[in-house]
Design a protein around this nucleic acid. Structure first.
Length: 814
RNA sequence: GCCGGUGUGGCGGAAUGGCAGACGCGACGGACUCAAAAUCCGUUUCCCGCAAGGGAGUGGAGGUUCAAGUCCUCUCACCGGUACCA
């Protein structure tokens, strides 16, 4: 970098100048009540960690920023906000370690994040900044919870949960990795505890169905479909013969009711409530031992050891409703308590898991569908049924329908749809989260905190320490916990569980629409104006949970009439991961982390933004490359010198009139390509085209001012600071932000003459220049006249000639 | 195992079924300079050849087509998700 003159490209002076200008002029403030079409471009807001911004953050943020700036120039009213998902475990862990209050840590971290984000020149409307930890915000998170509670969608249950003694908290399944906590890697065990659960399963079908209308990648939709895991089958009821009597009934879920005649035993999950009531005296000890062993294993350990099936006979029998066969009832941990009815009928002939179990414990294998060899493995394919009474001769589909019909007519069962999706474990035993606004009265009943008393504030505490009992640290705050029901005057105890981090991020896109409203989470009119989010960009790690939870809440709010769209996010794009230079995931331990602050101070924000967009397709995973950053910086310097001479004056080649025809083509093609690429988020190829323009411009004797102005506009969404600076040097006083996007003349994007290829039987023989509008017949005639073609065709017969306008002529001959 | 994705020069990556390798990085050469950096201009898929020219080529094997990186079948590798879900 040069020193002195001040006429070279100097992002360090340009960028703060324009950031200040945008701030002072409220350039990106949303104007309400315009008649412009709206566009809502949303980033997944970050958790403000102590580590600060990572180069992965600006990737998605730059993409939405480019689209936002582009749409403004296209005349849209753009909502482009930013905020903080600031509740969460890391701040609490830090507080436990240092004694600092999580609120203070959070404020510090947010300030740092805001500084970093602002240094990148994103066009957010900062008047709409929100934090999930702000009482004015979480008031409405609590309000939504109360609506869920009132609709019966929030309930309390004693459930075995992942208890992590080291963190003193319960973890959701998704927070447990390989039997260890995701954060910290501490051991996790299963322990029953009183928990708040949200009934997301009630919305399973709608969450599945409404995926169809969304403009999301098929892979993300598929991940959600798999997570919801719909399966269609039947429930069948079996009478039970046990020492204790025959009053009990066993209900199983199966997707293959057609194989009912092939059932040779039944299996209950070890936790199944029937087990205690049906177990025989003789088997009692063995069953108990097995149950204890299973309880000690985490879900993962249970599946990890899946290769080897285990189980114990209960001493009881189930009676097959179709043929009266007496089937032994076993318990085994390959049957999961949480899915279906927690019990199965085992058909070893036609289910591989049952087959393995039957082999191990020497249970009968009955073939009821022809087509395989059940002595070698289970046959799961289609085929004619045998040994199956009324099903004999039918194929699978017919037999399933017939059997469901039979079960229903005989009162032994019914068709049934089951989902893999589980209800959402919503409570956390933590301090740093939204308090759940519920009172536990002395008489043992529960009631919600009245809505007019929201927000229920997190109490201030000097020190956060685990309660030790598994309850949250709030249990220690006796002044807060012990209260009085404002309606009945009864003594009451506050709920000490808090909400998970997902809660605040479930609805933040709604608050951005109306961030200062004290009377509603979002006004009806504004919600109607802005929903749905037109473009939502974020990391693929949120492909399932965040997006599913947010969709669930949105649908509840839709049912309540709070929002008027069925879905919150119309178009979703996941930006790919940025790897370190060594092609490995960036991490402190690998020493390959790139700090955006360093890139900004060395090369400027415009270079960082542009480089990240130039690396490759937005959705691809791609490695960082320091030389690539320099290359981008070199390009922006080259742009600068194209406009500004060493003397600091505008390049005298830039003139009102002059233009050459070839340059005019590049100019109009550039507008066309960049416009089209921005519409499709293909920023890497848009940048290539801008580079082509600059390369061409350097070769010109003179440069039309209009073309150069257009170029600055095309560049401005990518590199807004340098674009604003050049725009002002071109003589404009106002920001470039709202200058209408340039248009191009289609006829000026095509050449008069093109080089086409002449092929013989698909092999290139020669290239010739022809007028680009030459018709196919004429092209064929011209091609036949080419010397090399004549020579190559000597002695051959022409079978066919294909001409593609403006591209090629292919002569098929032999 | 199942579901999804990706395989193209030394590297990141471009290519509505129609000239593979745009653009950038790196490398090499030239100009400028006492010299270097910076900058500007060129060359750069690989192999054979002094050259003219020829041959090969988009993970691999087949196929459809006048024409395949692109469509179809099979297969291999890597990445992501999920995992006894009955």
């Amino acid at each position: 970098m040069q020193e002195g003159s001040g006429n070279y490209y100097n992002p360090q002076s340009i960028e703060p100048k324009w950031q200040k200008y945008w701030d002072e002029n409220n350039t990106f403030q949303v104007q309400e009540g315009t008649n412009k079409a709206k566009f809502y471009a949303l980033d997944m807001f970050p958790y403000p960690s102590g580590a600060g911004l990572h180069v992965g953050h600006p990737e998605g943020y730059t993409a939405t920023d480019i689209v936002s700036r582009y749409k403004r120039m296209r005349g849209y009213n753009v909502l482009h906000p930013m905020g903080w998902d600031a509740f969460g475990l890391p701040a609490e862990q830090h507080a436990l370690d240092t004694g600092e209050h999580p609120r203070d840590i959070t404020v510090t971290n947010i300030n740092n994040f805001r500084r970093q984000i602002k240094s990148l020149g994103f066009s957010y409307d900062w008047d709409r900044e929100i934090s999930t930890t702000d009482p004015a915000y979480y008031k409405w998170t609590q309000w939504i919870f109360l609506q869920l509670y009132k609709k019966g969608l929030a309930y309390v249950a004693e459930v075995p949960v992942n208890w992590c003694p080291a963190l003193g908290t319960v973890l959701a399944n998704e927070e447990v990795i390989d039997g260890k906590s995701e954060r910290g890697g501490h051991p996790v065990i299963r322990k029953p505890m009183r928990q708040w659960i949200l009934k997301i399963t009630e919305y399973a079908e709608r969450l599945l169905e409404d995926l169809e209308e969304l403009d999301w990648s098929e892979s993300i939709k598929d991940m959600q479909r798999n997570w919801i895991g719909k399966s269609t089958g039947a429930e069948a009821r079996f009478a039970i013969e046990a020492e204790a009597g025959t009053a009990e009934e066993l209900t199983v879920f199966t997707t293959r009711p057609d194989t009912l005649f092939g059932a040779s035993y039944c299996v209950l999950a070890p936790e199944h409530e029937l087990v205690e009531r049906i177990v025989s005296t003789e088997q009692q000890a063995a069953v108990k031992a097995y149950q204890e062993q299973a309880a000690r294993k985490s879900d993962l350990e249970r599946t990890d050891l899946a290769k080897d099936k285990s189980g114990v006979f209960t001493g009881a029998y189930a009676i097959n409703p179709v043929n009266g066969a007496k089937l032994p009832i076993w318990i085994a941990d390959y049957v999961l308590a949480g899915y279906g009815t927690g019990a199965i009928m085992a058909v070893p002939g036609h289910d591989q898991r049952d087959w393995e179990f039957a082999k191990k414990f020497d249970l009968p294998i009955i073939e009821v569908i022809e087509g395989g060899d059940v002595t070698k493995e289970a046959y799961t394919g289609d085929g004619p049924h045998i040994r199956s009474g009324l099903l004999d001769g039918l194929n699978n589909e017919q037999a399933i329908a017939t059997m469901i019909d039979w079960l229903e007519k005989n009162g032994k069962g019914a068709g049934k749809v089951t989902y893999r999706l589980r209800d959402w474990l919503f409570s956390r035993q933590r301090y740093w989260g939204e308090p759940i606004p519920i009172l536990h009265l002395e008489d043992g009943t529960m009631k919600p905190v009245p809505e007019d008393q929201l927000p229920l504030l997190l109490p201030d505490v000097d020190e956060i320490k685990p309660s030790g009992t598994g309850e949250s640290p709030l249990a220690n705050v006796t002044d807060w916990v012990n209260t009085v029901d404002p309606e009945s005057g009864q003594p009451a105890r506050r709920e000490t569980n808090t909400m998970p981090q997902w809660a605040g991020s479930c609805w933040y896109y709604l608050r951005f629409i109306d961030p200062h409203n004290d009377d509603a989470l979002c006004s009806t009119e504004k919600q109607k104006e802005w929903l749905p989010v037109d473009l939502y960009i974020g990391g693929a790690e949120h492909a399932v949970l965040h997006l599913l939870y947010a969709r669930f809440w949105h649908k509840v709010l839709y049912d309540l009439g709070v929002v008027s769209t069925k879905e919150p996010f119309h178009k979703l794009v996941n930006q790919g991961m940025i790897l370190g230079e060594n092609m490995e995931k960036m991490s402190k331990s690998r020493g390959n982390v790139i700090n955006p602050d360093e890139i900004v101070s060395e090369f400027g924000a415009d270079t960082l933004r542009m480089y990240e967009m130039f690396m490759g397709p937005l959705e691809a995973t791609k490695p960082w490359n320091a030389s690539g950053v320099e290359g981008t910086y070199r390009f922006l310097s080259r742009v600068w010198r194209l406009f500004i001479g060493d003397n600091g004056e505008l390049n005298p080649k830039i003139q009102e009139y002059a233009s050459s025809v070839p340059f005019e083509r590049v100019w109009h093609r550039t507008i066309k390509k960049v416009t089209d690429d921005f519409e499709h988020l293909r920023f890497n190829t848009a940048i290539s085209q801008l580079m082509i323009f600059v390369n061409e411009a350097y070769k010109q004797e003179s440069l039309p001012k209009e073309a150069m102005e257009h170029f600055v506009q095309l560049l401005s969404p990518l590199a807004p600071h340098v674009a604003e600076e050049l725009w002002s040097r071109l003589g404009y006083k106002e920001t470039i932000t709202y200058v209408p996007w340039p248009t191009y003349d289609e006829s000026l994007t095509v050449d008069n003459e093109v080089e086409i290829v002449v092929q013989i039987s698909g092999k290139i023989v020669d290239r010739i220049q022809i007028p680009s509008d030459m018709e196919q017949e004429e092209m064929q005639r011209v091609a036949m006249e080419v010397e090399k073609v004549k020579a190559a065709l000597d002695g051959k017969t022409v079978r066919k000639v294909i001409a593609v306008k403006g591209k090629l002529v292919n002569i098929v001959a032999n």
